[in-house]
Design a protein around this nucleic acid. Structure first.
Lengths: 128, 128
DNA sequence: GCTACTTTTCTACGATTCGTAGAACTTTGA
DNA sequence: TCAAAGTTCTACGAATCGTAGAAAAGTAGC
């Protein structure tokens, strides 16, 4: 129920990365810098978005339950409700739950996991 | 890159359920019947969609790579490209891959898996 | 081969979501 | 109290999705 658009995703990435609460302005600045998402070389520098744009997506993310804001301070400060790992794990669970035969899905899932991930899983499952 | 709408989902569910190839007409009929998705009692019977509607979503699903059709036969026959389990497992992988620290995600994921699922996983991972 | 019927494709429209941001309102600092 | 900074409201264009008619294409019987 909460798939993210491109900008929403970028904002969440920032909130997840440095995970103190940030203001809309800070985020806007970081968004301009952190436009690593393409292969073209130097010279390129992400253009600044309007702060209102950032505020809009922050509000939308808040409505989706991914972000919470401190309303007390005046420049509101925003932060992710849960860590990226928690959020991602939760998403994985949602996906898993969308199929009737969860164990069959897990079987396929395990089949395509890397060796080191498999090792991680073994440890997590309480085995040597 | 391939999230499904409600009707698209319903169609995939049908294709996944009885998984011989089906025609648009068959699917439309099943869609009318298989409207179990609400609590109101008898009398209710999903209204028939136009066949063109079903054909449209089938085309869209085909474009998304979830469905393939036999173009040879005249009423084209449609079927899911991969099983629901495969598809779901693949989705889980996509989600997992969307985070930088996959192992951390797996840790959280395992934390919220049921006991029997954990047991399944242990077996799948090659342990007694 | 022509005609009636079936099936598929094309086009389209309303609703929702998302990127984007201006206009207007609110709060704060001097 | 006034200007600057911040927030909310409103909006618009693109994309997606449910929905389906109109038109085109194939099929079957005559």
């Amino acid at each position: 129920m909460a798939s993210l658009g491109e900008l929403e995703r970028a904002v969440m990435d920032l909130l997840w990365a440095g995970h103190e609460a940030a203001t809309a302005n800070t985020l806007r600045d970081r968004l301009a810098t952190t436009t690593e998402a393409n292969g073209d070389a130097a010279g390129h520098e992400g253009k600044e978005l309007a702060v209102t744009t950032v505020l809009t997506v922050l509000s939308r993310l808040e409505k989706k339950g991914l972000v919470e804001r401190e309303r007390g301070t005046r420049p509101h400060r925003y932060q992710a409700v849960s860590s990226r790992e928690d959020h991602t794990a939760e998403l994985m669970h949602e996906v898993l739950g969308s199929a009737p035969d969860r164990e069959a899905v897990l079987a396929r899932f395990i089949g395509s996991v890397t060796d080191s991930e498999a090792e991680t899983l073994r440890k997590l499952l309480g085995h040597i």
